[in-house]
Amino acid sequence: MHLAYPAVLAVLLFSVGVYGVLARRNVVLVLMSVELMLNAVNLNLVAFDVWLRDTLHAGQALTLFTITVAAAEIGLGLAIVLLVYRTRRTAAVDEVTALGDRHEADDLADAAKEQAAA
């Protein structure tokens, strides 16, 4: 089999995952997109493993590890999402922004204070 097929499929899948991570609003969907990215990597690894006829089977071993890591991550990730939902009543990634540092409000308040002081 041409190696290009699985390799191209993998990188396309990865890019789809990238798009999903950046475009989705619900954190669970973002997590799903991350899973797509990881799976793309898995396909890559398996294909390279078979192509290289690696006697150590590093690719497949790493694939198995990646699957496990992904499972662990999604478990913990969902727990975090639920915690966010419980405390912030939302699961939209762009609404969880309380810790940002933009401080436009702060700046405005400061400016007002300065005006008053002058």
Partner: peptide, 26 residues
């Protein structure tokens, strides 16, 4: 509202990564 306001950027980055990676791999 399934998609966030970040979609244009997402599309740009996604397409850029696809183009780069496909070029590299092919």
């Amino acid at each position: 509202d399934a998609d966030s306001g970040n979609r244009p950027a997402a599309l740009a980055v996604g397409v850029a990564s696809a183009a780069t990676l496909v070029t590299l791999v092919v």
